[in-house]
Design a binder for these strands. Structure first.
Lengths: 367, 367
DNA sequence: GTTCGGAACGTTAACGGTTCAGTAGCCTCG
DNA sequence: CGAGGCTACTGAACCGTTAACGTTCCGAAC
């Protein structure tokens, strides 16, 4: 038993002396045949060990796979550690569950450019999350004649897009810091390109970052601080390829070692900020008295630390993408009627990790 | 553009005046045709907007879908909150990523018995995790003529099985408590059946639990404590349908309200134990001085609380299941050569939440 | 000059269903 | 009594590939 498929619709039909159509109907349209015959069909099926219509053959005919693909260019395993990615996944799963379709995690390891996986995925659509703009996987997805929704990416013609306005969101956070009086800041950011790099980042690299989100957030910061007279080229920005608390801590250390005078550490993610907090603690710096630290995303761990951050509805991103993909009214064939660009609300959350910088006097003599 | 599939292998072949096979070979076996022709094929493909061989048609022909299904009878969204489930998912994803195959989350909401999703999933195999023994989804999976690996379930004939020896693991924890001197314990456990129930559990219900894992852990406790003369029918066991820290807390409250004399709260999961810790704190009980609390699983959150628990390699469970499923040497057709039953190691971890019970004297006068 | 062998490409037959346009038989109704 | 409609079922086309062989061609070897 449990060997190579033995029975098919045809063999069942032959055994019963009815047409394939009738057998098919027994499974898919019970109202199209007499209950008695249907019962016989199903019984014979059980007897012959026929497991019901083959899903792949059915998909070929109906042009429906019953699943959507999720592409994120990270080791899949990583996705399960980053709370933000997890939120997206959860939201997407939620939307898909409602519609009764599966979510297929498409393997797209950043190392080997295994484009093939994208070509081989039998899915009705793709959600693309957080991949670099120049990622070949993304290109491969766009090639496929199925609807696609991209999250946190720059808008592509004819493709739905979901995400917050990263630039505006970061601008509001920048304003908060500026209002507090910070002028001497440092920045911790995530990976800016596909190649592994860590350390200080030139302005050019910031502007050429292939991750839209990082680019937007850095640009917003630069713009806001330049507007109050800060020379952005003097602002230290440290990049980390990996996105973990430990990397955040090491980035903070690298930055503070070289620029001990900064009064605020702006991080482009909560994870990095949590790492920065750790490093501050190691240095016995009081947060926020000695050092302001801010994050981005609004993940639960950050919440617990009462981090000043920008909350974005991560779960909603995924859910929204799923809904967009699955809404049957929105599509004719596989083309979106009108490609939608949905901008999600963000919220500046002021926690206990931001405060005015100490004045020079305070620095020397304490508060 | 991006409309209904316009070009196929056949139309491309016609356009080029070659056979379909040749076009197919251009994609799948470059060595089977001259580089020059191949170049022409690919170029024409681009011109005609042919996105390459259709994955579903290919799957039908090759009988390979390039994905494995993961069935867990929980709202998918829940799976992303339970660290243990997440670990399994991560491990599975890891193994699949290595092999370049996708992981499809099969929607199987516990409410509506949407068996169909199982039938419709175009996958090369299934991993079944933590579903009740009598779940119709499980039955549907076993019907499918594809290899299956089950995790944390009782052994099914001809199907691979991965999991720890829950009974032995819980027995070792029980021994630890017995050695410490606990005889008056209470138990917090997870869902025991598919129907929603919360509250105290009769012995019969414990033994008839349709979740293998819970059944095994409870049985191990009963056995161990009866061996030292405890009448198990007097031991309060509280069940919670939902598996959250809050539910753990409320379960602990319910139990302690009715049985304030217990010296230890044994929980069948770390999550429940974390809830119990919370409730203990609310009652201003010292843990472990006033009350011993133990968990099960060894999740990071529990680690942080220095919980006494049983560590099990959750990630390894998923990875192992994936490897088993994907190992080409292990199967002829779709039947496993020899169905494997892999028992994973567990480790008793004694943290700071377990200690000897206070003597009666200590209870009245303090330590 | 025939044979041989490999490169390059073609033919045919699945793979396992779904769907749509019938058709036969029976009932109803004016 | 014939038109019309409904029920229950059938036949054939089609979905887009790939697998397993065939065929052709051409230069080298015997």
């Amino acid at each position: 038993m449990r060997t190579r498929r033995q029975a098919t619709l045809a063999s069942l039909a032959a055994e019963l002396g009815v047409s394939r159509t009738t057998v098919s109907n027994a499974y898919n349209r019970p109202d199209q045949l007499s209950p008695e015959l249907r019962r016989r069909v199903l019984e014979t099926a059980r007897k012959l060990g026929y497991p019901g219509p083959d899903p792949v053959a059915r998909s070929l005919r109906t042009r429906k796979a019953g699943a959507v693909g999720l592409l994120l260019t990270e080791a899949l395993s990583y996705a399960f550690r980053d709370p933000a990615a997890l939120g997206v996944l959860e939201g997407l799963a939620l939307a898909c569950e409602d519609a009764g379709v599966g979510v297929q995690l498409v393997p797209a390891s950043p190392g080997k450019d295994n484009i093939d996986a994208v070509h081989r995925a039998g899915v009705d659509g793709f959600v693309v999350y957080s991949v670099p703009d120049d990622d070949p996987h993304l290109e491969a997805v766009l090639q496929r004649p199925v609807p696609t929704v991209i999250i946190d990416q720059p808008v592509v013609a004819d493709v739905d897009r979901v995400g917050p306005d990263d630039k505006a969101a970061m601008a509001s956070l920048a304003d908060h810091l500026i209002e507090l009086g910070h002028r001497d800041i440092g920045v911790l950011c995530m990976r800016l390109s596909r190649e592994r790099r860590n350390g200080f980042v030139s302005r050019e690299r910031q502007e050429k970052a292939s991750y839209h989100v990082q680019r937007a957030r850095l640009a917003a910061l630069a713009e806001a601080f330049e507007a109050v007279g800060v020379d952005w080229s003097t602002v230290p920005v440290v990049e980390r390829f990996e996105h973990t608390i430990e990397d955040g801590a090491s980035a903070a250390r690298q930055l503070l070692d070289a620029h001990p005078h900064v009064t605020a550490l702006v991080c482009t993610s909560d994870i990095l900020a949590l790492g920065a907090l750790k490093e501050a603690q190691r240095r016995r710096l009081q947060v926020p008295a000695d050092l302001t630290i801010t994050g981005f995303d609004g993940v639960p761990e950050g919440e617990r630390a009462d981090l000043t951050t920008v909350r974005q509805p991560v779960r909603e991103k995924g859910r929204c993408a799923g809904k967009l993909l699955l809404d049957p009214n929105r599509r004719v064939g596989s083309a979106a009627v009108t490609p939608e660009v949905i901008t999600l609300e963000t919220e500046l959350r002021i926690g206990r990790t931001s405060a005015p910088p100490r004045t020079a006097e305070q620095r020397w003599f304490g508060p």
